[in-house]
């Protein structure tokens, strides 16, 4: 598998560390307590048989976290974005 890092270009997946589902969001309730939102965040994952948005880390490269959109049936990568950009965009009021 080859991942096209926005900074480093296309690199073998062995340079990256995998984190998983990029669709979950950390509750912003100050860590009040182990409520349902927290349990979902920590333990439940999207696991589609199809396109998946997931976090990868370019450990042996620029150390960027990336949001990779990848088909879990074929491993074909549709899109690679900087996680930071995705996170900032998500914070903006829609």
């Amino acid at each position: 598998m080859r991942i096209n890092c926005p900074y480093c270009g296309e690199r073998g997946s062995e340079e990256f560390a995998y984190h998983g589902d990029a669709t979950v969001t950390r509750p912003r309730d100050g860590g009040a307590g182990p409520n349902a939102a927290w349990i979902d965040y920590v333990y439940l994952r999207e696991n589609p048989s199809g396109l998946h948005r997931e976090l990868w880390y370019h450990a042996s490269g620029c150390q960027s976290w990336l949001v990779v959109t990848r088909d879990l049936r074929t491993h074909a990568i549709a899109r690679v974005e900087l996680a930071r950009s995705v996170a900032l965009a998500r914070m903006e009021p829609s």
């Binding site: 598998m1 995998y18 048989s49 998946h52």
Partner: peptide, 10 residues
Amino acid sequence: GYNSYAQRGN
């Protein structure tokens, strides 16, 4: 080490 439904690896 990454999610997959393909019965193969790399």
